[in-house]
Amino acid sequence: MYDFSIILASVINGTMTGAVYALVALGLTLIYGVLHIINFAHGSMLMVAMYAAFFLFAAGGIDPYVALPLVAALAFAFGYALQRSVISKTSHGRDEIILLVTLGISIVIENAALFFFTSNERLVTLPYDIEGIDLGVTFLVVPQLAAFGASLVITFLLWLFMARTDTGKAIRAVAKERLGARLVGINVDHIFAISFGIGTACVGAAACLLVPTFPVTPQIGYVFVLIAFTVVVLGGMGSFVGALIGGLIIGIAESVGGLFFGETLGKISISLIFILVLLFRPTGLFGQRLR
Protein backbone atom coordinates (compact mmCIF):
# COMPACT_ATOMS: atom_id res chain seq x y z
CA MET A 1 0.00 0.00 0.00
CA TYR A 2 2.71 2.43 1.01
CA ASP A 3 6.24 2.47 -0.26
CA PHE A 4 8.69 1.16 2.33
CA SER A 5 10.82 4.31 2.13
CA ILE A 6 7.83 6.51 3.06
CA ILE A 7 7.16 4.37 6.13
CA LEU A 8 10.86 4.45 7.02
CA ALA A 9 10.90 8.25 6.70
CA SER A 10 7.86 8.44 8.92
CA VAL A 11 9.50 6.18 11.52
CA ILE A 12 12.66 8.33 11.53
CA ASN A 13 10.69 11.55 11.93
CA GLY A 14 8.64 9.96 14.71
CA THR A 15 11.81 8.89 16.52
CA MET A 16 13.09 12.48 16.53
CA THR A 17 9.88 13.82 18.15
CA GLY A 18 9.63 10.76 20.36
CA ALA A 19 12.91 11.63 22.07
CA VAL A 20 11.42 14.94 23.26
CA TYR A 21 8.25 13.15 24.40
CA ALA A 22 10.56 10.86 26.37
CA LEU A 23 12.20 13.85 28.04
CA VAL A 24 8.83 15.34 29.02
CA ALA A 25 7.65 11.96 30.29
CA LEU A 26 10.89 11.46 32.23
CA GLY A 27 10.00 14.42 34.43
CA LEU A 28 6.49 13.07 35.00
CA THR A 29 7.70 9.56 35.81
CA LEU A 30 10.33 10.87 38.24
CA ILE A 31 7.74 12.89 40.14
CA TYR A 32 5.43 9.89 40.24
CA GLY A 33 8.19 7.49 41.26
CA VAL A 34 9.29 9.60 44.23
CA LEU A 35 6.20 11.49 45.39
CA HIS A 36 3.49 9.13 44.09
CA ILE A 37 1.81 12.18 42.59
CA ILE A 38 0.34 12.14 39.10
CA ASN A 39 1.18 15.70 38.16
CA PHE A 40 -1.58 17.03 35.94
CA ALA A 41 0.14 20.43 35.82
CA HIS A 42 3.12 18.94 33.96
CA GLY A 43 1.83 20.09 30.59
CA SER A 44 1.07 23.63 31.74
CA MET A 45 4.57 23.92 33.15
CA LEU A 46 5.90 22.89 29.76
CA MET A 47 3.75 25.59 28.22
CA VAL A 48 5.09 28.25 30.60
CA ALA A 49 8.66 27.17 29.90
CA MET A 50 7.95 27.39 26.16
CA TYR A 51 6.77 30.97 26.66
CA ALA A 52 9.95 31.70 28.63
CA ALA A 53 12.08 30.33 25.77
CA PHE A 54 9.99 32.27 23.25
CA PHE A 55 10.31 35.61 25.06
CA LEU A 56 14.04 35.12 25.66
CA PHE A 57 14.34 34.68 21.91
CA ALA A 58 11.90 37.37 20.82
CA ALA A 59 12.93 40.05 23.29
CA GLY A 60 16.50 39.14 24.17
CA GLY A 61 17.55 37.48 20.92
CA ILE A 62 18.80 34.46 22.84
CA ASP A 63 18.87 31.24 20.84
CA PRO A 64 16.60 28.64 22.57
CA TYR A 65 19.43 26.10 22.57
CA VAL A 66 21.68 28.59 24.40
CA ALA A 67 18.84 29.48 26.76
CA LEU A 68 18.22 25.82 27.63
CA PRO A 69 20.33 25.69 30.83
CA LEU A 70 18.79 28.95 32.04
CA VAL A 71 15.19 27.88 31.36
CA ALA A 72 15.85 24.48 32.95
CA ALA A 73 17.30 26.18 36.05
CA LEU A 74 14.32 28.54 36.32
CA ALA A 75 11.97 25.60 35.89
CA PHE A 76 13.79 23.75 38.65
CA ALA A 77 13.36 26.70 41.01
CA PHE A 78 9.67 26.99 40.08
CA GLY A 79 9.05 23.27 40.63
CA TYR A 80 10.93 23.27 43.93
CA ALA A 81 8.97 26.26 45.21
CA LEU A 82 5.63 24.89 43.98
CA GLN A 83 6.12 21.58 45.79
CA ARG A 84 7.28 23.21 49.03
CA SER A 85 4.71 26.01 49.11
CA VAL A 86 1.54 24.59 47.53
CA ILE A 87 1.49 20.89 46.76
CA SER A 88 2.98 19.59 50.01
CA LYS A 89 0.58 21.81 51.98
CA THR A 90 -2.57 20.88 50.11
CA SER A 91 -2.08 17.30 49.02
CA HIS A 92 -3.37 15.14 51.78
CA GLY A 93 -5.73 12.25 51.48
CA ARG A 94 -6.56 10.09 48.51
CA ASP A 95 -4.49 10.20 45.34
CA GLU A 96 -7.43 11.52 43.28
CA ILE A 97 -7.49 14.58 45.54
CA ILE A 98 -3.83 15.26 44.77
CA LEU A 99 -4.57 14.79 41.06
CA LEU A 100 -7.32 17.40 41.46
CA VAL A 101 -4.95 19.79 43.23
CA THR A 102 -2.53 19.59 40.30
CA LEU A 103 -5.49 20.05 37.94
CA GLY A 104 -6.36 23.22 39.87
CA ILE A 105 -2.77 24.43 39.52
CA SER A 106 -2.86 23.74 35.79
CA ILE A 107 -6.13 25.71 35.45
CA VAL A 108 -4.47 28.67 37.17
CA ILE A 109 -1.28 28.51 35.09
CA GLU A 110 -3.10 27.96 31.79
CA ASN A 111 -5.53 30.84 32.26
CA ALA A 112 -2.84 33.15 33.59
CA ALA A 113 -1.02 32.48 30.30
CA LEU A 114 -4.23 33.11 28.36
CA PHE A 115 -4.78 36.33 30.28
CA PHE A 116 -1.27 37.73 29.87
CA PHE A 117 -0.17 36.31 26.52
CA THR A 118 -3.58 35.89 24.74
CA SER A 119 -4.26 32.80 22.64
CA ASN A 120 -2.15 33.96 19.66
CA GLU A 121 0.24 31.34 18.35
CA ARG A 122 3.91 32.18 18.80
CA LEU A 123 6.75 30.36 17.08
CA VAL A 124 10.50 30.81 17.27
CA THR A 125 11.92 30.99 13.75
CA LEU A 126 15.61 30.19 13.81
CA PRO A 127 17.76 31.57 10.99
CA TYR A 128 19.17 28.09 10.32
CA ASP A 129 15.98 26.04 10.72
CA ILE A 130 15.89 24.78 7.12
CA GLU A 131 19.45 23.47 7.19
CA GLY A 132 20.00 19.83 7.97
CA ILE A 133 21.10 16.49 6.63
CA ASP A 134 19.64 14.43 3.83
CA LEU A 135 19.18 10.77 4.71
CA GLY A 136 17.92 9.84 1.27
CA VAL A 137 14.48 8.73 2.43
CA THR A 138 13.88 11.91 4.43
CA PHE A 139 15.43 15.26 5.21
CA LEU A 140 16.10 16.05 8.86
CA VAL A 141 16.36 19.72 9.84
CA VAL A 142 18.50 21.15 12.64
CA PRO A 143 15.63 21.60 15.17
CA GLN A 144 14.71 17.90 14.81
CA LEU A 145 18.31 16.73 15.19
CA ALA A 146 18.96 19.06 18.12
CA ALA A 147 15.79 17.89 19.88
CA PHE A 148 16.71 14.25 19.39
CA GLY A 149 20.38 14.61 20.38
CA ALA A 150 19.83 16.91 23.36
CA SER A 151 16.99 14.78 24.74
CA LEU A 152 19.17 11.68 24.72
CA VAL A 153 22.12 13.53 26.32
CA ILE A 154 19.89 15.00 29.07
CA THR A 155 18.34 11.60 29.75
CA PHE A 156 21.81 10.08 30.06
CA LEU A 157 22.99 12.89 32.37
CA LEU A 158 19.92 12.44 34.55
CA TRP A 159 20.54 8.71 34.77
CA LEU A 160 24.17 9.41 35.74
CA PHE A 161 22.97 11.88 38.39
CA MET A 162 20.55 9.36 39.87
CA ALA A 163 23.12 6.56 39.84
CA ARG A 164 26.26 8.35 41.03
CA THR A 165 25.54 11.39 43.20
CA ASP A 166 24.51 11.42 46.85
CA THR A 167 21.39 13.41 46.06
CA GLY A 168 20.49 10.91 43.36
CA LYS A 169 20.89 8.06 45.79
CA ALA A 170 18.82 9.91 48.38
CA ILE A 171 16.05 10.37 45.79
CA ARG A 172 16.05 6.67 45.01
CA ALA A 173 16.03 5.86 48.71
CA VAL A 174 13.00 8.09 49.31
CA ALA A 175 11.24 6.56 46.31
CA LYS A 176 11.77 3.04 47.69
CA GLU A 177 11.09 3.59 51.36
CA ARG A 178 10.05 6.97 52.75
CA LEU A 179 10.14 6.10 56.41
CA GLY A 180 13.45 4.27 56.18
CA ALA A 181 14.98 7.21 54.35
CA ARG A 182 13.80 9.57 57.07
CA LEU A 183 15.25 7.29 59.74
CA VAL A 184 18.74 7.35 58.21
CA GLY A 185 18.67 11.16 58.26
CA ILE A 186 17.50 12.09 54.78
CA ASN A 187 15.43 15.30 54.69
CA VAL A 188 12.45 13.81 52.91
CA ASP A 189 10.60 17.10 52.33
CA HIS A 190 13.73 18.55 50.71
CA ILE A 191 14.16 15.48 48.50
CA PHE A 192 10.49 15.65 47.50
CA ALA A 193 10.94 19.24 46.39
CA ILE A 194 14.25 18.44 44.64
CA SER A 195 12.56 15.64 42.70
CA PHE A 196 9.67 17.89 41.75
CA GLY A 197 12.21 20.51 40.70
CA ILE A 198 14.15 18.06 38.53
CA GLY A 199 10.92 16.81 36.98
CA THR A 200 10.02 20.40 36.11
CA ALA A 201 13.56 21.08 34.84
CA CYS A 202 13.12 18.21 32.33
CA VAL A 203 10.08 20.07 31.05
CA GLY A 204 12.08 23.32 30.92
CA ALA A 205 14.74 21.68 28.77
CA ALA A 206 12.13 20.01 26.57
CA ALA A 207 10.41 23.38 26.08
CA CYS A 208 13.57 24.91 24.55
CA LEU A 209 13.86 21.95 22.19
CA LEU A 210 10.20 22.14 21.17
CA VAL A 211 9.83 25.86 20.69
CA PRO A 212 11.41 26.01 17.17
CA THR A 213 8.96 23.41 15.80
CA PHE A 214 5.77 23.72 17.91
CA PRO A 215 3.92 27.07 18.03
CA VAL A 216 3.16 28.04 21.64
CA THR A 217 -0.41 28.67 22.76
CA PRO A 218 -1.82 28.59 26.31
CA GLN A 219 -3.66 25.37 25.41
CA ILE A 220 -0.60 23.42 24.21
CA GLY A 221 0.03 22.02 27.68
CA TYR A 222 -3.13 19.87 27.44
CA VAL A 223 -1.84 18.21 24.26
CA PHE A 224 1.49 17.39 25.85
CA VAL A 225 0.12 16.25 29.18
CA LEU A 226 -1.94 13.61 27.38
CA ILE A 227 1.10 12.47 25.43
CA ALA A 228 3.24 12.40 28.57
CA PHE A 229 0.63 10.37 30.48
CA THR A 230 0.44 7.90 27.61
CA VAL A 231 4.22 7.54 27.48
CA VAL A 232 4.49 7.06 31.24
CA VAL A 233 1.66 4.55 31.44
CA LEU A 234 3.02 2.65 28.44
CA GLY A 235 6.56 2.57 29.80
CA GLY A 236 5.44 1.82 33.34
CA MET A 237 4.83 4.42 36.05
CA GLY A 238 8.11 5.38 37.69
CA SER A 239 10.39 3.62 35.19
CA PHE A 240 13.17 5.62 33.50
CA VAL A 241 13.88 3.11 30.73
CA GLY A 242 10.14 2.82 30.23
CA ALA A 243 9.80 6.57 29.70
CA LEU A 244 12.57 6.58 27.10
CA ILE A 245 11.29 3.59 25.13
CA GLY A 246 7.67 4.65 25.60
CA GLY A 247 8.49 8.12 24.26
CA LEU A 248 10.05 6.70 21.13
CA ILE A 249 7.14 4.29 20.60
CA ILE A 250 4.57 7.07 20.97
CA GLY A 251 6.54 9.37 18.66
CA ILE A 252 6.65 6.67 15.99
CA ALA A 253 3.02 5.61 16.54
CA GLU A 254 1.87 9.21 16.10
CA SER A 255 3.91 9.71 12.94
CA VAL A 256 3.02 6.38 11.31
CA GLY A 257 -0.61 6.70 12.48
CA GLY A 258 -0.75 10.07 10.75
CA LEU A 259 0.56 8.45 7.57
CA PHE A 260 -2.08 5.72 7.49
CA PHE A 261 -5.14 7.48 8.94
CA GLY A 262 -4.44 11.05 7.88
CA GLU A 263 -3.36 14.01 9.98
CA THR A 264 -6.65 14.40 11.92
CA LEU A 265 -7.60 10.81 12.69
CA GLY A 266 -3.94 9.78 13.19
CA LYS A 267 -3.94 11.57 16.55
CA ILE A 268 -6.35 8.97 17.88
CA SER A 269 -3.51 6.43 18.08
CA ILE A 270 -2.21 8.15 21.23
CA SER A 271 -5.51 8.02 23.16
CA LEU A 272 -6.14 4.47 21.94
CA ILE A 273 -2.74 3.26 23.16
CA PHE A 274 -3.43 5.01 26.46
CA ILE A 275 -6.82 3.34 26.92
CA LEU A 276 -5.61 -0.11 25.86
CA VAL A 277 -2.54 -0.04 28.12
CA LEU A 278 -4.58 1.15 31.12
CA LEU A 279 -7.09 -1.64 30.60
CA PHE A 280 -4.94 -4.59 29.66
CA ARG A 281 -1.45 -3.94 30.98
CA PRO A 282 -1.66 -1.26 33.68
CA THR A 283 1.91 -1.98 34.80
CA GLY A 284 3.17 -0.91 31.38
CA LEU A 285 6.19 -2.37 29.67
CA PHE A 286 8.72 -1.86 32.46
CA GLY A 287 6.68 -0.98 35.56
CA GLN A 288 6.68 -3.27 38.56
CA ARG A 289 3.48 -2.47 40.32
CA LEU A 290 0.68 -0.05 39.86
CA ARG A 291 -2.58 -0.11 41.75
Binding site: E96, L226, F229, L265, I270, I275, L278, L279, F280, R291
Partner: peptide, 28 residues
Protein backbone atom coordinates in the same frame (compact mmCIF):
# COMPACT_ATOMS: atom_id res chain seq x y z
CA UNK B 1 -13.07 0.52 33.26
CA UNK B 2 -14.88 -1.27 36.07
CA UNK B 3 -14.54 -4.75 34.58
CA UNK B 4 -10.77 -4.25 34.44
CA UNK B 5 -10.77 -2.79 37.95
CA UNK B 6 -9.59 0.75 37.29
CA UNK B 7 -9.88 2.88 40.41
CA UNK B 8 -8.89 6.32 41.66
CA UNK B 9 -6.53 8.30 39.45
CA UNK B 10 -6.48 5.62 36.78
CA UNK B 11 -10.22 5.86 36.27
CA UNK B 12 -9.84 9.66 36.06
CA UNK B 13 -7.14 9.31 33.40
CA UNK B 14 -9.04 6.79 31.27
CA UNK B 15 -12.12 9.02 31.12
CA UNK B 16 -9.84 11.85 29.99
CA UNK B 17 -8.43 9.61 27.25
CA UNK B 18 -11.94 8.64 26.10
CA UNK B 19 -12.97 12.28 25.83
CA UNK B 20 -9.87 13.00 23.76
CA UNK B 21 -10.48 9.97 21.51
CA UNK B 22 -14.07 11.17 20.91
CA UNK B 23 -12.79 14.68 20.15
CA UNK B 24 -10.44 13.31 17.49
CA UNK B 25 -13.23 11.13 16.06
CA UNK B 26 -15.67 14.04 15.92
CA UNK B 27 -13.06 16.16 14.14
CA UNK B 28 -12.22 13.42 11.65
Amino acid sequence: SFRYGLRGSYFALITLAFAEAFRVLATA
